[in-house]
């Protein structure tokens, strides 16, 4: 069972996508795991469906979208702080009022 607010796009994916914004602290079921969301999840953001080790490919739409740069636990936000492109670096503007979004 996985929470209906999270979307699995392809069978082999190791991430799920939020189909709506989900508050920090929300308890989510992810395939037998129960996790508390550590950060607020914006619509379209990703969480880990499975544990992902550092260097492992992140799979979404059934395709690699980059590599993990740290060990990522089930239910953890997957974004620029723990994965990177295998092509070109992602450019972001640092914003003091936000953590990862």
């Amino acid at each position: 069972m996985t929470d209906s607010r999270l979307l699995l796009l392809a069978p082999d994916d190791n991430v799920l996508v939020a189909r709506q914004s989900i508050d920090q602290g929300t308890i989510l079921e992810i395939e037998g795991h129960t996790i508390a969301l550590a950060v607020a999840l914006g619509i379209g953001h990703k969480v880990a469906r499975k544990p992902i080790s550092s260097g492992e490919k992140v799979l979404k739409y059934g395709a690699p979208i980059g590599s993990a740069t740290a060990l990522i636990a089930v239910g953890e936000h997957v974004h620029i702080h723990n994965m990177q492109s295998d092509y070109t670096t992602t450019h972001v503007i640092e914003r003091p009022d936000r953590a990862h979004s």
């Binding site: 939020a18 990703k46 395709a63 690699p64 980059g66 997957v78 994965m83 992602t90 979004s101």
Partner: peptide, 11 residues
């Protein structure tokens, strides 16, 4: 793009 949840160019 990153604010909106996209992390990499390939994504």
């Amino acid at each position: 793009n990153a604010d909106g949840g996209l992390t990499t160019i390939e994504e």
